[in-house]
C-alpha cells in the first residue's frame, strides 16, 4: 500500500520543478555565451536587409568563425547606427546625399528601380512626368485627363521616412506636403497589393518586386518613365531614370573584416543572390562612382 502522504510530497516537488525549469533553462541559455571569433553588425533599410541577410549567410558559410548580424529599421536608422558606432556598416536604399559625403563613405552593392504601377486593366500605357506631378499634387484627379477611363485616380503614396518616397519626390521635384495621397503605404508588397486590388490606383514600387509579382500573376503593370521602359535591364544599364542604388555606408575607411565583407557584397559571387531578391547587380568597378553620381 502506498502512503497517501508520499504522493503529496511528490506533488509539491513536481510543482517546484516546473517553476525551476524556466530559470534553469534561462541560465543555460545565458551561460553558453557568444562563440563567434569576429562579429560584424549591419543595420538599416528594410529593402536592403533581406538581400544583405542572404549575402551574409553565404559569407559566413565561406568564412567559419565569423558572424554577421543584420538588423533592420529603415535607412535613417542605418545612418544613425553607423554614425554612433552601434553598427559597423549601415544600409541605405539610396545614394549618399552631398551633405552626408563628409561623414560617410558609400559602396553600392545593387540597384533598385522604382516603377510607376497601375492596375492591369487600366488602358493607360504611359503618362508624362508632368502628368505624374499633376496627379500627385491633386491637380489632375481623373484618369480621362491622361487618356484613361472615366474614373477618379486613387493616389498611392509611401509613408514618410521611406527612401523610396525620398527618391520619388526628388525625381519629380515634389514636396511631400504637396502630395494629395488617397492611400499611404509602407512597403513594396503593400503598394503592389493596394494597386492590384484597385483598378483606379496609381502607385510606385521597386521594379524588381513589381516584376516578380507580375510574373506570379498579380494584375498590375509597370508604366515607362520618361519614355524608358521600366525593366531590370534599363535599370542595370543606367538608362532608367527613376532608380536607386542600394548602398552600404561606413564612417571610417573600411579595414579588415568590414572591407572584406564589402568587397564580397560587391563581387560577382553574389550576383545570383541579388537577382534572386529582385534587384539589379552592378559591377564593383562602377559601384563607388555611381554612388556619387546618384547623389548629385
Amino acid at each position: 500500500m502506498t502512503h497517501p502522504f508520499q504522493s503529496l510530497f511528490l506533488n509539491s516537488t513536481r510543482r517546484n520543478l516546473l517553476l525551476g525549469m524556466g530559470f534553469s533553462l534561462l541560465l543555460t541559455a545565458c551561460s553558453s555565451g557568444s562563440s563567434a571569433d569576429q562579429k560584424l553588425t549591419l543595420t538599416g533599410s528594410s529593402t536592403v536587409a533581406p538581400l544583405i541577410g542572404e549575402i551574409a549567410k553565404r559569407y559566413e558559410a565561406e568564412n567559419p568563425g565569423i558572424r554577421i548580424d543584420v538588423q533592420t529599421g529603415g535607412s535613417s536608422r542605418g545612418l544613425a547606427d553607423a554614425s554612433q558606432g552601434l553598427a559597423d556598416i549601415g544600409m541605405i536604399s539610396r545614394g549618399l546625399k552631398a551633405e552626408e559625403e563628409g561623414e560617410f563613405q558609400g559602396f553600392v552593392i545593387a540597384k533598385d528601380g522604382i516603377g510607376l504601377i497601375v492596375h492591369g486593366d487600366n488602358p493607360v500605357q504611359a503618362i508624362s512626368d508632368q502628368q505624374v506631378v499633376d496627379i500627385y499634387k491633386g491637380e489632375v484627379d481623373a484618369w480621362q485627363a491622361v487618356g484613361g477611363n472615366n474614373a477618379p485616380i486613387t493616389v498611392v503614396n509611401k509613408a514618410e521616412g521611406r527612401s523610396t518616397l525620398e527618391l520619388f519626390l526628388k525625381y519629380f521635384e515634389l514636396e511631400n506636403s504637396e502630395v494629395q495621397a488617397d492611400v499611404v503605404i509602407g512597403d513594396n508588397q503593400q503598394g503592389i497589393k493596394t494597386v492590384a486590388g484597385n483598378p483606379n490606383a496609381l502607385g510606385y514600387v521597386s521594379i524588381g518586386a513589381a516584376e516578380y509579382d507580375i510574373a506570379q500573376g498579380s494584375p498590375i503593370k509597370l508604366l515607362p518613365v520618361d519614355k524608358i521602359a521600366a525593366t531590370t535591364e534599363t535599370v542595370q544599364d543606367g538608362s532608367f531614370p527613376l532608380s536607386r542604388p542600394l548602398t552600404l555606408v561606413v564612417t571610417e575607411p573600411p579595414m579588415g573584416l568590414t572591407q572584406d565583407f564589402i568587397n564580397f557584397a560587391q563581387s560577382e559571387q553574389v550576383h545570383d543572390i541579388v537577382r534572386a531578391q529582385n534587384f539589379v547587380p552592378v559591377s564593383s568597378s562602377l559601384a563607388q562612382t555611381q554612388s556619387e553620381a546618384t547623389a548629385n
Partner: peptide, 15 residues
C-alpha cells in the same frame, strides 16, 4: 525590431 533584431540565424545564447 529595434531590440531583439532581425537576424534569422539559430541563436547560441540570449546575448
Amino acid at each position: 525590431i529595434f531590440t531583439s533584431g532581425y537576424v534569422d540565424r539559430m541563436p547560441g545564447s540570449v546575448w
